[in-house]
Nucleic acid binder design. Structure first.
Length: 844
RNA sequence: GCCCGGGUGGCGGAACAGGUAGACGCAACGGACUUAAAAUCCGUUGAGGCUUGUCCUCGUGUCGGUUCGAUUCCGACCUCGGGCACCA
């Protein structure tokens, strides 16, 4: 290690080294204390062990660490755990490239992460980490799979899936961004495969309803989730195929049953199973087949975006509108999706943008049935999607569209042709992956018994280590004879194991429960521990997990609740999304080479500087751009802090104050307000105001302003120290201020605080002391500045005593030359007095 | 296209309930210390004006409104960021 960057007497390197060692020996970073009554579970999203924590991790974990430390100092029993989301593609991809086994690289990386987190002074109990790729953990991930299976929430289904050709695996909908793979950015194609799904859609409504319990979540996150779940209310209506031989009903979903008289055509998605059946004419069939192939070749981007061109064709057949009795043509079109609603729609071109565009292109009639004015338009030039009066709608004419919707639903229910229905955009969670580095799905296929779940007593299904994990599109595990061949748990005959592994989001959907009893080996979690610690009081992590991890974790929690295994419905009481750290306005990324690692910073300036800077850089939830100058500023501040406090300690030593009293043990005989005056009183006030502000700001996640308050206090101390007259000086006050400023900075910059605490002769450790509380008597301002305005413009300012009367203020106002001059010969019509703030004279 | 957030000095950002806009920090400039530099310490620093003051005018994306008073509330627009995006 090289010497410190020049900074007065502040030797961050040796200080941090010294305390790291001491803290580790004493286990001081474990904040659990079962003798305390109230608990606080502070959780930060655990990292994927990529090798070294990045700046986002540093930000995330520093925020959590500060909160956990303060909660502990405020007397809470604090659970502040750490672990690793250790399964996943990157390790496997790296293994394919470099030949190093994922297990080896993962554990090497974990050690590195661990060391870095320790160096940053994080208060995790490193002895109780949770690592998802260990059999002791994934045994219970598999147990969860079985639980969902038993509850009918896990199913194997043939269906179109998102296939990433480069990763050679299936992706969940959430992992596809703009038709591309989230990880490798290559284009995602559709493929029909038999895959495992978790039926999260069964919980769509519960996920929406229970948002009411998430008062401690930012609205924007709930909005994202609502959007993702995509609930829409409407009706399912059956249209009968116009056919002489057979009664075929085709249901559609619509949110606008009130527009049913405006249906001028009907569309099936190209993948709709009835397309095959109903197209009878040979020539038409040719054309429809051609279209189907054309559309199936379209990528998600070409087909899926709102601006994509609409294409389709007439099937030669008709359906009967069940309400109007009208016969309308059946088309297929690329813009009708097979996996939403019923895969078929009633098209109302006058009142739907997409149908309008399609009708115009293919010259299909457009009929107005909702009119904003109630009058029928002569010509339809544009779509009207709003509410209005129903027209051209038979017995429903004249109704408001909202009312019409209810009336039509009532009608179709009575006539037995449909019903009210709710649809969600949320799709079932596809969890199988044709990859090696994941938790094996605990299922066995027996020729006689069929699909058999692995009995709980046989868990874990161990992921074998001697496997060839080259990507072939098939699960690497399928090449391992040893793994694949098994005995049927039911009949004992030779069987085959499921060779897919689980999406890593399954592992991370319950880790917060495991933290409550990390080494318990009888169950996934010890109930008493979970009852005590859960739900998480404060969760902190990137907003990019709003739709995946956070929804899945909420889903898992609800499943456990319904299984009667836990007594809460939501895992995270409060959630705080921190912002990302950019460099030059760009997202830091290894591939672009624009990365600043936390280690560079703590190696050069120390972890205190890193922590301080990352909190001071800007509001914790906003995107912040890295600035080397800013880091230096933080480092300089700590140097200045060190010098000024050391000077205080010096002074107190010289005056004999520190020797004369057994300060460390002394809690009583502190300053009484009346005994102070002048600069001392001012400093005492500043101190108590700072205690109040820092505490308030930190719990509002305003770390930047909390730090600026500490800076201001330091400036006040510095000024106080430069006082000429010795009588103005109060040793006790200086001591108390020193003691408290150290406490205030201690969760943010734990090393320097501990060092100076020791220098002050206090009992080890500052991190075990109670968090300071402010005294309102001290914090109270004596004088306040009243602002004088004339017609809202500031004309004068003057100090008055707190709570002074309007009369007093008014008397001054009308004697102030500047104010009198501003009034001139105008007439005073009104006087506004805001206590302790301002006096405004209104003239005309 | 729809739904959320933001736009404040040269820069990052303060202003918690409509009441002193620019806290704190960075950068810059001036001074002290030094043979010198670095570091440190002390100042100045939104723009413009002159009558240089405890001064005046302007100023929180643009335009308008409510109010004695608007960065804060309302309306329209411009712009940046995020989410969703043929979801019937």
């Amino acid at each position: 290690m090289h010497s410190n960057v020049v900074n007065g007497g502040y030797e961050s390197k040796s200080i941090e080294k010294k305390w790291l060692k001491k803290w580790e020996e004493d286990g001081i970073n474990n904040l659990k204390d079962s003798s305390r009554k109230n608990k606080f579970y502070c959780l930060e999203m655990f990292p994927y062990p990529s090798g070294e924590p990045h700046m986002g991790h540093a930000r995330n974990y520093t925020i959590g660490d500060v909160l956990a430390r303060i909660k502990s100092r405020q007397g809470f029993n604090v659970l502040h755990p750490m672990g690793y989301d250790a399964f996943g593609l990157p390790a496997e991809n790296a293994a394919i490239k470099s030949g190093i086994h994922p297990k080896k690289s993962t554990f090497t990386n974990i050690r590195k992460m661990e060391e870095a987190l320790m160096k940053m002074g994080m208060t995790y109990n490193f002895k109780e980490q949770v690592i998802t790729c260990e059999p002791e953990y994934y045994k219970w991930t598999q147990w969860f799979f079985l639980l969902l299976y038993k509850m009918g929430l896990a199913e194997k289904k043939e269906g179109p899936v998102n296939w990433c050709g480069s990763c050679q695996t299936v992706l969940a909908n959430e992992q596809v961004i703009d038709g591309r793979c989230e990880r490798c950015d290559s284009e995602v194609t559709r493929k029909n495969l038999s895959q495992w799904y978790f039926k999260i859609t069964d919980y769509a409504q519960a996920l929406l309803d229970d948002m009411e319990l998430l008062k401690g979540w930012p609205d924007r996150v709930l909005t994202i989730q609502k959007n993702w779940i995509g609930r829409s209310e409407g009706a399912k209506i059956n249209f009968k195929l116009d056919d002489n031989d057979e009664e075929i009903f085709i249901p559609v979903f619509t949110t606008r049953p009130d527009t049913i008289f405006g249906v001028t055509f009907f569309i099936l998605s190209p993948e709709h199973p009835l397309v095959e059946k109903i197209v009878t004419d040979k020539e038409t069939r040719k054309e429809i087949d051609r279209l189907k192939i054309l559309i199936s070749k379209q990528t998600d981007i070409e087909r899926g975006s709102a601006i994509a061109e609409k294409i389709g064709g007439f099937t030669g057949r008709y359906v009967i509108n069940p309400v109007s009795g009208e016969k309308v043509p059946v088309w297929i079109a690329n813009y009708v999706l097979s996996d939403y609603g019923t895969g078929a729609i009633m098209a109302v071109p006058a009142h739907d943008e997409r149908d309008f565009e399609f009708a115009k292109k293919y010259q299909i009639p457009i009929r107005e049935v909702i009119s904003p004015t109630g009058k029928i338009s002569a010509e339809i030039k544009e779509v009207f999607t709003g509410n209005g009066k129903m027209v051209n709608s038979g017995q429903f004419d004249g109704l408001d569209s909202e009312e019409g919707r209810q009336k039509i639903i009532k009608y179709i229910v009575e006539k037995n042709i449909g019903n009210a229905e709710i649809n969600y955009k949320l799709k079932n969670w596809l969890i199988s992956r044709q990859r090696y580095w994941g938790a094996p799905i605990p299922i066995i296929y027996c020729e006689k018994c069929g699909m058999v779940p692995v009995p709980e007593k046989d868990l874990p299904v161990i992921l074998p280590e001697d496997v060839d994990f080259k990507p072939t599109g098939l699960s690497p595990l399928s090449y391992s004879e040893k793994f694949v061949n098994a005995r049927c748990p039911v009949c004992g005959s030779p069987s085959k194991r499921e060779t897919d592994t689980m999406d890593t989001f399954v592992c991370s959907s319950w880790y917060f429960l495991r933290y409550c009893s990390p080494s318990y080996d009888k169950e996934a979690f010890r109930k008493e521990e979970v009852d005590y610690w859960m739900p998480v009081d404060q969760y902190i992590g990137g907003i990019e997990h709003a739709t995946m991890h956070l929804i899945y974790s909420r889903f898992f929690t609800k499943v456990l609740y319904d299984a009667g295994l836990i007594n809460f419905k939501e895992p995270f009481t409060r959630y705080y999304p921190h912002g990302v750290v950019t460099l030059g306005g760009q997202k830091m990324s290894k591939s672009k080479g624009n990365v600043i690692n936390p280690s560079e910073i703590y190696d050069k300036y120390g972890s205190d500087t890193l922590r301080l800077y990352i909190l001071f850089i800007g509001p914790a939830d906003s995107i912040v751009d890295w600035s080397d100058k800013g880091v230096e500023g933080s480092y300089r501040f700590l140097g200045r802090f060190y010098r000024i406090i050391a000077e205080n300690i010096n002074k107190l030593e010289k005056s004999g104050f520190l020797r004369s009293k057994n300060i460390a043990g002394q809690k009583s005989a502190r300053i009484v307000p009346d005994t102070l005056d002048g600069p001392s009183k001012e400093l005492a006030r500043k101190l108590h105001q700072t205690i109040r502000k820092v505490t308030d700001d930190i719990f509002r996640f305003n770390f930047n302003t909390a730090i600026s308050a500490v800076m201001e206090l330091l400036n006040s101390i510095s000024k106080y120290n430069s006082l000429k007259k010795a009588d103005d000086f109060n040793d006790m006050l200086l001591f108390e201020t020193t003691e408290n400023i150290l406490k205030l900075i201690s969760p943010i910059a734990p090393f320097i605080a501990e060092e100076l605490w020791e220098k002050l002769g206090m009992e080890y450790s500052i991190h075990k002391t109670a968090w300071p509380e402010y005294d309102p008597e001290f914090a109270k301002e004596e004088n306040i500045t009243i602002v004088f305005q004339v017609n809202g413009k500031i004309r004068d300012k003057k100090d008055f005593s707190l709570d002074c009367s309007e009369e007093e203020v008014s008397r001054y106002a009308f004697s102030s030359p500047r104010i009198v001059e501003s009034i001139g010969d105008k007439k005073v019509v009104k006087k506004i007095f805001v206590k302790n703030k301002l006096y405004n004279i209104v003239i005309v």
